[in-house]
Structures are given as C-alpha cells and as structure tokens.
Design a protein around this nucleic acid. Sequence first.
DNA 1: TTGTAAGCGTTATCAT
DNA 2: ATGATAACGCTTACAA
Lengths: 333, 333
Amino acid sequence: MTTLKELAALLNISVSTVSKALNDSHEISEKTRIRVKELATKLNYKPNRIAQQLKTNKSKTIGVILPTVTNPFFAEVLHGIERTATDNDYDIIVCLSNENYTKEKKSLELLSNGSVDGFIIAVARESQVKKQTEHIDAILKSKIPVLMFDRVVNEINCDKVVVDDFQSVYEATEYLIKKENRKNILLVSNIEELSVGKLRIKGYSKAVQAHDLKPEILKLDNAIDVDIEKRIYNYLKNNKIDAILSIDHITGIVAINMAKKLGKDIPKDLSVVGFGYEHTQLLSSPKISIIHQKAHKIGEMSMKLLVDSIKEEDHELKTIIVPSELKLSESSK
Amino acid sequence: MTTLKELAALLNISVSTVSKALNDSHEISEKTRIRVKELATKLNYKPNRIAQQLKTNKSKTIGVILPTVTNPFFAEVLHGIERTATDNDYDIIVCLSNENYTKEKKSLELLSNGSVDGFIIAVARESQVKKQTEHIDAILKSKIPVLMFDRVVNEINCDKVVVDDFQSVYEATEYLIKKENRKNILLVSNIEELSVGKLRIKGYSKAVQAHDLKPEILKLDNAIDVDIEKRIYNYLKNNKIDAILSIDHITGIVAINMAKKLGKDIPKDLSVVGFGYEHTQLLSSPKISIIHQKAHKIGEMSMKLLVDSIKEEDHELKTIIVPSELKLSESSK
DNA sequence: TTGTAAGCGTTATCAT
DNA sequence: ATGATAACGCTTACAA
C-alpha cells in the first residue's frame, strides 16, 4: 500500500504538503496539487483507514449483533442495516450470538475497544430468557451508544426500534373474528419465551377475550422439525378449530400442510394467518395470510437512529415503533 | 476509554512500563505488574484496537461481500463464516452487493485501504452475467488475498470453494432415472444465467442424455412470484412429466404445491427434487427431496482457507469442492 | 506556498 | 526494573 511518505519522497516534497494537496487545501499551489494527485492516482494511493481512525478517534463502523441470520426476519433486517450504513458511510461488523448469552457478551466486549462507534443489537434468546443483560449495561456505561431492536430489554435505557407486536396480532385476531367470523382460533407459538412472543400472545388473548371467546394456545416450546408437524397435526385432528394464528414464520405454513392432510378446506373450513417475509406466501398453497413485518424498514430505522445518536451532542433516547401490515391471501379477500 | 497514558499518569510510572506490565513482560517486577493490572481492571482498560492495528499493520478483519443474505444459502454460509472467523480471532465486515456490480465494486474499493486483511466474495449476478471482474483483479494486484465461493470466476486466479454443482445434479438425475424409474424429468430453473445454474443444467443434461432421455427445461429467467406459479402450473398441466428437478430453493416447493393443485399424487405420479436448506423440507408437504448444500461448511472452509493463505508465506492457490448430499424425502425411501 | 512537529495509542528498541 | 524514544500513517496547528 502506497503511503503519504512514499509519495512525498518520490516528489521531493514534505508529507504535509502531499496530505494537504490531496485534501484540496487552499494553501497549496495549483501546480503541486496536480503533480501530487497525478502520482497518487498512478500509484493507486488510498489513505490508510486505520491511521485515519486513530487520528479522529472514530471507527465509522457499527457493531451489529444478531441472534441468527438464517431466520429470514433477521436476514432482512440486516439487509436494511447494511444499506443504510453504506448510505451513511459506515461499515458494519457482524457478529452472530447464535441465541447464546456467552457469545453475545464476548462479541460486545471484543468490539468495545474502539473497533466500533456504536452497537445495534437484537438480544439473544438466552439473555432474554435468563434476564442476563449486565453486559449491555456495561457497554452503555462506557459511553458507547447501543440501539436495541425487536428483542428489547425494557429495563435498559437506550434507543429502541420495535415492531407493534401486541397491536398487529390484536388486529389480526379481530380480523379473523369480525370479518371471517371465526370462533375457535388456535394460536400456535414456537417463541413464547421471547419478549416478542409474549407480546403477540397478549395481543391475541386480549382480542379473543374482548369478543367473549376462549383462548386456545398450542405452545411448541422450541420443538424440532418432526415434532412440530406431529403436534400440530394431532391438535387439529382432536380439536374443533376454524382459524389458526401462528406467531412465527414457520408454523403457519406447516399448519396449512397438516390441515390439508386432514382434508380441511382452506380457506372455507379454516383461515390461516402467520408471520411472514419475502417468500412466505409463495411457499404456501393455498396462500397463507401474513402479518408482514417491515423488516427492511426496521433495519433502516435502527441504523438511522443510531447514526443520529452518535452525531447529536445531547441525544434524547427514543423508541420507534414500526407498524406491520396484514397481507391477506388472495383467497380470503 | 482508558489509555496507557492515563494509567501511567495515575501510577506515576512511564507508559512503556505500563504496557510491559500488562503484557506480562519478564522485565517488570511482580509488584508493579500487580499494581498496574489492578488499576487496569478497575478502570476497565482495554488496549485500543485501532492503535494496535496501525502498529502491526494488520486489521484482523475480513471483508465479506455477498450478493444477498435473504437467500438462505448465503445466510447459512455467512453463519459458517462468522463462526470460523470468531474461532480464529477475526472480525468480519459484511457488505451486500445486492447482485449489483457497482455496489460490489464500491465495497471492494472502500475496504481495500487497510480495513481488511482479505476478502471472501460470492460474485454478484450482474458481475457474473456481464463478465465484469476487473475490480476483483485490481484487489489481487494490490496483494490483498481474495477467496471466491459458489459464484466463482474461472478466469481469476485465487482460492476458491465451490459446490459440486455438476456432480450433485448429475447424481440426483440419475437417481430419478434409475431408482425411481422416471422418464420425463423436467428441470425448473430460475438461475440459468449464473455459473452455478449453468453447471447444474449441464449435470442434468448429461445424465438425461446418458440414459437416452430427452431434456426438458423450464427457464423462468428471474421471474417474479406470481409468474413463477403460473408458469409452472401451466407447464405441468400441458406436459406429461413424472419428475421435477428444481435447481434453486424456491421453485421445487412451488412445483409441489402446483402439482397438488392439479391433483397429482406425490410421490406416486411425480417425484420432486430441489435444492434446500435448514427448513426447506419442513415447509413442503408431501416432503420434497433435496440436494442439501453444506452451506455452513462452505462458509467454514472459505474462512479457514483464507486465513491460511494470509498466514502462509508462500501460499499456493487451491480450489476446494464441498460435496452436497441428496436428502430423500421419507416417502420416496 | 511549503515545511516542521506534535499527536492519536500502542509496541519495540534501546538506554539507564 | 524502569524509562525515553521512535515508529505505524495520517492530520493539523504552527513556522518559515
């Protein structure tokens, strides 16, 4: 890599002159500026980013800690984060906690040494379930801004971007009751121990009770593939259900497949609503209705808010709610 | 952030003594070492990574350029990359090209200024289709190691990790012919212009011809959701087909759904094989058979090979082939 | 208009 | 055993 020093030596001028010339300083004569720039281009000179970072004490990098990226929700959020970061001249360092508290903690610690100017984090399942969050507090204490999205910790005071989990499920439930006239709505959950899962279940319960119906909830508690199918199949076989509301992005499609296996007519006998993303509806037949979380937007808003908080002198903490959209399957319209 | 200087001032000793004490130098007395370490712990001192990077001229960071991360294949590869990077004390900076040549080029340029010690890249669709790859050559010329995976450019000389695209599809086709006794195998493709797509189609064609059958290929050329369904539906309706081989991770499931709509009995009337990942089989009913690419392993091998190439004095370029595995649906066993 | 020198935080070499 | 100094590559206040 070419350095200022090398350019200076080749041109027989000082390092500072070269630096100023490249930065279009008024102090420098037209002639030398051109001379310097020509050589710089020729030798493909690029200012060493590390040196600049040391000088300015800014990394222009954000640490992004995600539980996983194989879940399409987080993948899409990451997409939004990356795009917005690029637009704001930031890089992102991505760490995956794998839903694991220890890994999450380690990642935060490793990066809180000047490597990043701030963090975007969706808390790992384990951290959330065990309520272990001092590692995040520690970061905040060291004055590095943190933004939490989706999986948030209420007790921690920082910027947040969340989905309207309660509201969207409440409305979806009400839709099933009022528009599709369903009475026996089963909620299927594989994420009941997460903050978002709890909120979604609350939204459902509240809506059901508001219409004097009784809640029915099938908690799969993190079951593995084959069990998911079996348990949903058995439940549908043994219970009179006319609608299914899945609060994750998998079990809704599985429920459709199991219902078909049982000879149910969708959407006549059974309405199915789930959470979904880019390809969810394409992968189901008949089409599932989905609560579409604006994952890309969540990523975008998160990065924007964090960048603002870094720039602003006296930033006041915000919580932004990104509304979801109920996308009906064509058949149910 | 606490610095060596601050520690030194507080302890009334020199910066270099502090540095040595923290690094367990033999030169330093037991007493001061303890004194230093205690204060360091108390003030939560962490060596500034940027300064260390400047000193060693190494970033211990790898730039990872992916076309997208919402495709589960790349998501899983990223998972493998991240894990292996962490195991080897590397960070990763992730950039998404969005299948776009310009963005890919810009990302490479922005990071080739000392920000990263090497690149892992899966070439964008546009770069591959238009055969624009000088930007990658430029990086190699500047002596930054590059590793390409999956979407590779044959003409470029660098380390590579690829899937056995030709072989796996050849074998899957042969399986359909020999074990399931299929005669009219339709290949469905939505990625025919990619290097991997071409190889997969070749594998299919070769196998079909080897058994004196005629190739049938439905090219969707990057169609959008609703068209995908229609075109597959119509094809199945108007043509006598007894097996479908999808070379991506979406159209196989869509084909199953369309076939069911047409009243076909799977797997009796029709065998379906596709490419797939973690949840692919869970999302289909009846179960699809999948060519399972070891995406996690691909990420792992890529990072390992790149790290090796960085460490080794005279590294000789390698191409590693990661074999896929044909995972039959239970019904077809 | 150009150059000198200090400093960002660290480590390594060379005194003391 | 401890400290002074230089160096990594860059920017910038200050001289010349």
